[in-house]
Computed example of a mutant assay.
Amino acid sequence: MKYFEQAYEHMERPFAWLDLDALDANINFINQTATMPIRIATKSIRSLPVLHYIMERLDTCVGVMTFSASETLYVLQHCDVHCLIGYPVMERTQIRQLLQYDNVTFMVDHVAQIMPLREEARKANKVAHVCIDLNMSTDFKALYFGTKRSSLHNIATLNHFLPYLQHPHIMVDGVMGYEAQIAGVSTHPINRVKGWMIRSLQRRAKKEVANQRRLLVAHCKFYFPHIRFVNGGGTGSIHYTTKQKEVTEMTIGSAFYAPSLFDDFNALSLQPAAGFALRVTRHPEPNTVVAHGGGYIASGAIAQEKAPVFVTHGYHLLSLEGAGEVQTPIHIDKHAQPLQIGDTVYMRHAKAGELCERFNTLHAVRGREYRGEMSTYRGDGQCFL
């Protein structure tokens, strides 16, 4: 990280860094690998300047997938882009605000989500565009492999649900079938036995997902033949999803920053593009230093993989302390680069956009040159979830 030291020598620690060369390489990887239009997952970016930067460089960008109604409104105020809201919206005021835009699609998988959309659209004399969220998880009976998300998992549930969408103030815009068990689960976790099980389950799940999604999409199109798009995939399933003929667009988010959770996806040629820097402020033992801050733990089920990781090899978190809210003890291997008080430690978050909730600014670097600040949602004074 010597070139980082030169570029960031004027910066006060802690700060969040963004490597534009790595970001460009990841964008190029997506352009070369994902042979279908891309929808950017904003939850993995959480910075308007970075979002614009990526959209300008993608070969085919059909829009963004936002993660809340308020965030969608914020994005629409600053970007001329189609927004697919990835999660149901139940707040009436926000529905009324979003109905003023023609380039918004709501996510639905249950009758209770449709009713407020129908009522508010009727009152406003508008048409609410919706996307049908299909459950692509694989139920192996003894193990549920996937996410607990949509209630639409077979033809019977669709037959009960779809008639409620046949309404003068509802337009079925698209279908989404997200294969989370393939796109977001590392095939080589720290636990080797767990890794073997995941790879085995994924091989079986790929066949079932392909058949199930084609069947359910065809059924939706029988009811609504003018469906405009079918969304699927994610960073971890790029090679798989591009081969699925029923999918017309893919959602990509984590691939751009390439957080540590995706280091063990063997098929991904990604470069770490974002992280944070801490100052070493204590040296209690010969092989231990303490950095100020660092407790930026990723969301989801608690596991070792959710902790931040070091950019430089030879440094480790202490098992009894981990990354702390105000200080992070660091064990230094015998042959690793020594650390002294005043030195900088560069780290990476386990998940992509969540890092931006901790910092107001991403400080961009290209090569050895500092390229300025790119504000995060937090830096813009925004907090959505």
Rank of each mutant, 00 (worst) to 15 (best):
K141G: 09
N231A: 12
I190L: 13
F67K: 00
F310R: 09
K43Y: 14
S68D: 03
G86K: 08
T242I: 15
I238A: 10
T328V: 06
E208N: 09
V89N: 12
G342N: 14
Y101M: 10
A124L: 09
D21K: 15
V289R: 05
I182G: 02
A22M: 15
R122S: 01
I252Q: 13
T35S: 11
L201F: 00
L76C: 07
G86E: 04
L278E: 03
H82L: 07
A34P: 02
A258Q: 06
W17G: 02
G177A: 13
D21C: 11
Y164M: 05
V172G: 00
K245Q: 14
L117V: 01
L270N: 02
P225L: 06
F256N: 07
A323M: 03
H292D: 05
N28D: 15
I190T: 14
E354C: 01
K334S: 14
F276D: 00
L362K: 12
N266L: 10
I252C: 15
I30C: 02
A156L: 09
V290M: 05
V247A: 15
Q202T: 02
Y370E: 00
R371T: 11
T72M: 10
N31Q: 05
K194Q: 10
F229E: 09
A128W: 00
G295N: 06
Y3S: 06
M11N: 10
T42R: 08
G232H: 09
E373S: 09
G324K: 06
H110Y: 02
P286I: 15
C61Q: 06
H188D: 07
V209W: 12
G275Y: 00
G314N: 04
D264F: 10
N125R: 15
L385Y: 07
M347Y: 03
G379P: 05
T35A: 11
L51Q: 00
V326I: 13
T328G: 02
A301S: 03
S150H: 01
R204M: 11
A41G: 12
T105H: 00
T328S: 06
K334E: 03
T72A: 02
N211C: 11
Q327H: 14
L84M: 11
Y178E: 13
Q382H: 07
H167T: 01
N231R: 08
V75R: 07
T66F: 09
D109E: 05
A307W: 14
R371F: 00
E208D: 05
A301Y: 08
F140Q: 10
R279E: 15
E91L: 01
L84I: 03
F224R: 07
